[in-house]
Write a protein that binds this DNA or RNA. Structure first.
Lengths: 102, 102
DNA sequence: CGCTGGTATCAGCGAGTGGTGATGTGACAG
DNA sequence: CTGTCACATCACCACTCGCTGATACCAGCG
């Protein structure tokens, strides 16, 4: 069957700042201080976005002394990739599969 | 380099109704009337969403008499899939790539 | 033509969301 | 114990965005 993509994950990744965070975390595991430097956003703002990403199951936290490291969960991104690939494959066959005018 | 995912396309797909439309269009090419039946949304609402999808380059229109057929552009979805696959692959190596505490 | 039906556009309203400052919490240093 | 630092939470404001009704547009049909 055609597995529909999870709207929640996409919605979370739809925010430009969050997408930038995800892109940064795809390169290396970072803590909030690093993310503040890299993105230029306020700490409070970052913390809010990290909470959203955490609750969406996209990132994991790993305490390290007073610091909190964030790392991506690759399986979530891989799942997204697979679901979009399925959609794309299905869409290729749908071009000629046209429902009749009512 | 790590190609960042296009925020605009993701943002557009983040809406649940639009995602449902895309899922439906991945199965067959439909016109607005069909989409109204399938989603239960008002015609005006659908038309607004279709405009957003069109401007994001996700769907193409194909007039057919008085009807307007919409079909997906598979390459956009395939591109998304590839970009997420890259992110996932990069994220897998980023787990041990931890920046030092400041 | 004028009428009808399919579609697009416009203006307005209400809810949800992001940004921010103040504040709370918990861990380490001295 | 006390101060400091990293981080999280809360409350609030402003703004955006989606939904809707009214309306305009356009293609076919009689």
């Amino acid at each position: 069957m055609l597995t529909s993509v999870d709207p929640d994950v996409i919605r979370v990744l739809g925010d430009p700042l969050r997408l930038k965070i995800v892109t940064l975390l795809a390169r290396e595991t970072l803590c909030t201080t690093h993310l503040v430097e890299e993105t230029g956003a306020k700490q409070t703002n970052l913390s809010n976005h990290m909470k959203v990403l955490r609750e969406a199951g996209i990132v994991e936290t790993e305490p390290c002394g007073r610091f909190t490291y964030y790392k991506l969960k690759p399986e979530v991104l891989a799942g997204l990739s697979e679901q979009f690939a399925e959609l794309a494959a299905s869409a290729r066959t749908a071009t000629e599969n046209k429902r009749a005018c009512p």
